[in-house]
Computed example of a mutant assay.
Amino acid sequence: MSIASLTDPITPEGGKIRFENLEHWLQGRTMYGGASALIAYTAAVRAFDDLPPLRAGQVAFVSPTGPEVELKREIVRQGRNVAQVRSEIWCEGKCTLTAFWLFGTEREPNAVHEAAPVENWPGPPEEADAAMEGKGPAFLQNNFEIRRAQDMRGPGAPVVRRWARLKDRGGLDPISELILLGDVLPPGAMRAMQRQGPISSINWSFNLLDTAPTTDDGWWLSENASQHAAGGYSSERLRLWNTEGRQVLDGMQSVAIFG
């Protein structure tokens, strides 16, 4: 399923639509979180086409999202510099995803502080070995190319770091690309799990550090790191860097750890 097939059905009017060939974007019995977040974001920007650049997003994955959906979106507040928009995905009369997007115009800075450079630079993706070939959920195998960006394998420090890029990026703007790709890796807590079991993203909150991010050949360095795991949940920090080592996204996520 191409990116266009995922976004083309979305109209400025919203409402009920159906996605075809959804099996290419499935993660278990639901749509991959990055894909459903992209749908919610696209619904927002197509409904309100005069929004300033996206600065942040808060996404709650409420329940499984299937092929037949209803898209709802509204402007919660429109100020002089900042617009806040809510968009939701509904399936069978129930909300399955709710997202809150913050858009803001650029202003004369009163504080300037660059994000710290990436630690333990893994080297360029062209020199990295392929990872997760023939493994992982359907959405990963069909839509992403993954390469190693750390020496560690198996149990250890709860950090998963990989080079990642979309196989098909045709017609996708950089912000949509980051939303689609930002949730691609398994949680860092995977390395601390005492036994294999299912995992599920509950929410995802992120700040964009660059409103026009660029990278070489579509590659982004992605890292999921568990900050704390207990009681069946993990608090994860999600970050993305470009091929020059500049951080472009900083996020947090709550993940349910089953089994």
Score class of each variant (00 low, 15 high):
residue 6 L to G: 05
residue 7 T to M: 02
residue 12 P to R: 05
residue 12 P to G: 10
residue 13 E to K: 12
residue 14 G to L: 05
residue 14 G to I: 00
residue 15 G to S: 08
residue 19 F to S: 09
residue 19 F to M: 03
residue 19 F to E: 00
residue 20 E to D: 15
residue 22 L to Q: 01
residue 26 L to I: 07
residue 26 L to Y: 04
residue 28 G to K: 12
residue 29 R to L: 12
residue 32 Y to Q: 06
residue 34 G to T: 02
residue 35 A to D: 00
residue 37 A to L: 06
residue 38 L to T: 13
residue 38 L to P: 12
residue 40 A to G: 10
residue 42 T to C: 10
residue 42 T to N: 02
residue 45 V to C: 10
residue 49 D to F: 11
residue 51 L to S: 10
residue 54 L to S: 06
residue 59 V to E: 03
residue 60 A to C: 14
residue 65 T to L: 10
residue 66 G to T: 15
residue 66 G to H: 08
residue 67 P to T: 06
residue 68 E to I: 13
residue 69 V to N: 00
residue 73 R to G: 01
residue 73 R to F: 05
residue 75 I to T: 04
residue 76 V to C: 03
residue 76 V to R: 11
residue 78 Q to I: 09
residue 79 G to K: 05
residue 82 V to R: 07
residue 82 V to W: 06
residue 83 A to D: 10
residue 87 S to M: 10
residue 87 S to R: 01
residue 88 E to Q: 13
residue 91 C to T: 10
residue 91 C to A: 14
residue 91 C to L: 05
residue 92 E to V: 07
residue 98 T to F: 01
residue 100 F to W: 10
residue 101 W to I: 10
residue 102 L to P: 01
residue 103 F to V: 12
residue 104 G to A: 15
residue 111 A to L: 14
residue 113 H to G: 04
residue 114 E to I: 08
residue 115 A to M: 12
residue 120 N to W: 02
residue 123 G to K: 03
residue 124 P to Q: 08
residue 125 P to A: 03
residue 126 E to K: 13
residue 127 E to P: 00
residue 128 A to H: 00
residue 130 A to D: 10
residue 131 A to H: 02
residue 133 E to L: 12
residue 134 G to A: 08
residue 137 P to N: 12
residue 141 Q to M: 01
residue 142 N to Q: 13
residue 143 N to T: 12
residue 145 E to K: 07
residue 145 E to D: 11
residue 155 P to D: 00
residue 155 P to Q: 02
residue 155 P to W: 04
residue 156 G to P: 00
residue 156 G to F: 03
residue 157 A to P: 00
residue 158 P to H: 00
residue 161 R to N: 11
residue 163 W to H: 06
residue 165 R to T: 12
residue 169 R to A: 13
residue 176 S to M: 14
residue 179 I to C: 02
residue 180 L to W: 10
residue 180 L to D: 07
residue 181 L to S: 11
residue 182 G to F: 04
residue 182 G to T: 00
residue 183 D to K: 05
residue 188 G to H: 00
residue 189 A to K: 01
residue 193 M to I: 03
residue 193 M to A: 07
residue 196 Q to V: 15
residue 197 G to H: 06
residue 201 S to C: 15
residue 202 I to C: 15
residue 203 N to I: 09
residue 204 W to N: 14
residue 206 F to A: 04
residue 206 F to N: 01
residue 207 N to Y: 12
residue 211 T to S: 14
residue 212 A to I: 13
residue 212 A to H: 14
residue 213 P to T: 12
residue 215 T to C: 08
residue 219 W to G: 04
residue 220 W to N: 07
residue 221 L to E: 08
residue 222 S to I: 06
residue 225 A to I: 01
residue 225 A to W: 05
residue 228 H to V: 13
residue 231 G to N: 07
residue 236 E to G: 02
residue 236 E to C: 13
residue 240 L to I: 04
residue 244 E to Y: 06
residue 246 R to E: 14
residue 248 V to W: 07
residue 249 L to F: 03
residue 253 Q to V: 00
residue 253 Q to L: 01
residue 258 F to M: 08
residue 259 G to A: 03
